[in-house]
């Protein structure tokens, strides 16, 4: 599910860099931004389906990193620590959006789910079909609750371990697995409603 790239290898073997950044080395902190920005941006992008918001969350994450990395307990906790900052910022932003315009959000969510459920999924053009599938998946992810969405993204796209996700979200591993189970089930229902199964994927 989660293919390891050169960037992933670099991210997972950057203990020295993290240690330097922790000790206040600005160059090392800059390198950490370069290493992790794409992952953090994509986490936020899948969470909100909004480029500007994702950029804002990613930037805020690294501002917090610059300010608080000296408080990091140990180097091996860096990854969950960074994701915890991002997840907290995402949850805070989500709450802000809900309280600012709760009614509109609810209406949008309802319309969103109705649109997902009713619109037919058909296009003979493969490229368009792939883009359309991404769009549907993005909308389906946004239809999940924030807790389920965060767990699905962390597990499926960020390749985090259940233990790490539990640590990030400050809950038990069983809670994480339960959220993942119901999150995937919900996604399955949404996709089935649009007749989307693995059969539509190219062999």
């Amino acid at each position: 599910m989660y293919a390891e790239t050169i960037l992933d290898i670099a991210m997972n073997h950057s203990d020295t860099l993290i240690e330097k950044a922790k000790n206040g080395d600005r160059a090392a902190q800059g390198k950490l931004v370069n290493l992790w920005f794409k992952r953090i941006y994509n986490f936020a992008h899948k969470y909100f389906a909004d480029h500007d918001l994702a950029m804002e969350i990613a930037q805020e994450t690294f501002i917090v990193l610059h300010r608080k990395i000296c408080q990091l307990e140990s180097v091996d906790k860096f990854k969950p620590w960074l994701y915890r900052i991002t997840a907290n910022l995402c949850h805070a932003e989500s709450r802000k959006m809900q309280s600012a315009d709760r009614l509109r959000m609810n209406d949008d969510r309802q319309e969103h789910e109705e649109e997902i459920a009713s619109a037919p999924f058909y296009n003979p053009d493969k490229q368009f079909q792939r883009e359309e599938l991404q769009r549907v998946l993005q909308k389906a992810l946004n239809a999940l609750s924030t807790e389920q969405r965060a767990v699905v993204i962390m597990k499926e796209y960020e390749g985090l371990k259940f233990r790490e996700i539990a640590e990030i979200l400050s809950c038990s591993e069983n809670t994480v697995k339960s959220r993942l189970y119901y999150g995937l089930s919900h996604l399955r229902q949404i996709l089935l409603a649009k007749n989307i199964t693995t059969e539509i994927l190219e062999p």
Partner: peptide, 18 residues
């Protein structure tokens, strides 16, 4: 659920300039 996981893999990361 396994099927859903396979479908989720098609939602690729977006490229972004740091």
């Amino acid at each position: 659920l396994a099927d859903t996981r396979t479908l989720l893999t098609t939602y690729a990361d977006k490229e972004v300039i740091v």
